[in-house]
Design a protein around this nucleic acid. Structure first.
Lengths: 124, 124
DNA sequence: ATTACTAATGCGATTTATTTGCAATAATTT
DNA sequence: AAATTATTGCAAATAAATCGCATTAGTAAT
């Protein structure tokens, strides 16, 4: 299944890149220049995740936020960094901090979802 | 608003205590002996959270899981431990590991939600 | 250029998790 | 036993995310 280059994909990626933060579908729809259907935005986002372009963060508000994968992120060490969700401006940003943990034997960790919630630098 | 002791509260707390894990509303409804309405379960759970009896974990599947607060947990240092969600048995458990992080100046952290997803000891 | 192939899109409907309004019920205090 | 009001059940409402399906439009081959 070869991927195609479409205006929707370009627009979504452009918005997220410009924001420099993790964004939810509705935030993207608000910011985006062209008119794209909600379902399409979700499909574009999920495809980008599959392709390792974006990563998904589940915040405490139960919403998915999507952020650019840094180039140094490998498939193996997947995005084990903290995220910060601001309750004031409602944005999610990737923090430089890596998540360190050691789990008991027998556990197999497939993904890490760490979100700190509070008030960000800009809003405090 | 003084709290009252009701069969619903007792039943919900009993199920969670017996499980020794974090549980979602539907898992609780499945396990519970008496017949309690879905909305009631949610209200009971949220009240317990308000009262510091339970804490809420948002998993990657977008569902809320509720777990007992250990007695040594204080309001201040709120539940900064890791959680593990198993994709096989679909349960969430509290890990003993504390979450350590240092955030840049200007950020105010109000809550921490860290969930590792994978396969647990029992299922692997 | 034109055609063929099929990924991507739009739309509407659906699913799933959680909450809410409101009237009825029941725990607790007097 | 009566009064007060927290709690519950039920149905409906929200809200996020997904899905089926017919249509559109990239892409590669001719």
């Amino acid at each position: 299944m070869k991927r195609r280059n479409t205006p929707s994909k370009q627009a979504v990626l452009s918005v997220i890149t410009k924001a420099g933060k993790a964004m939810s579908q509705d935030a993207i729809e608000e910011e985006i220049a062209i008119d794209i259907n909600r379902a399409t935005i979700y499909r574009v986002l999920n495809r980008f995740c599959d392709d390792g372009v974006l990563h998904k963060v589940m915040a405490e508000d139960g919403k998915q936020y999507f952020a650019l994968c840094e180039t140094y992120d490998t498939k193996a060490a997947t995005h084990q960094h903290f995220h910060f969700k601001c309750t004031k401006c409602d944005t999610v940003e990737c923090l430089p901090n890596q998540v360190n943990f050691s789990i008991p034997d027998g556990y197999l960790v497939e993904s890490v979802n760490c979100v700190l919630t509070g008030v960000c630098k800009n809003c405090s």
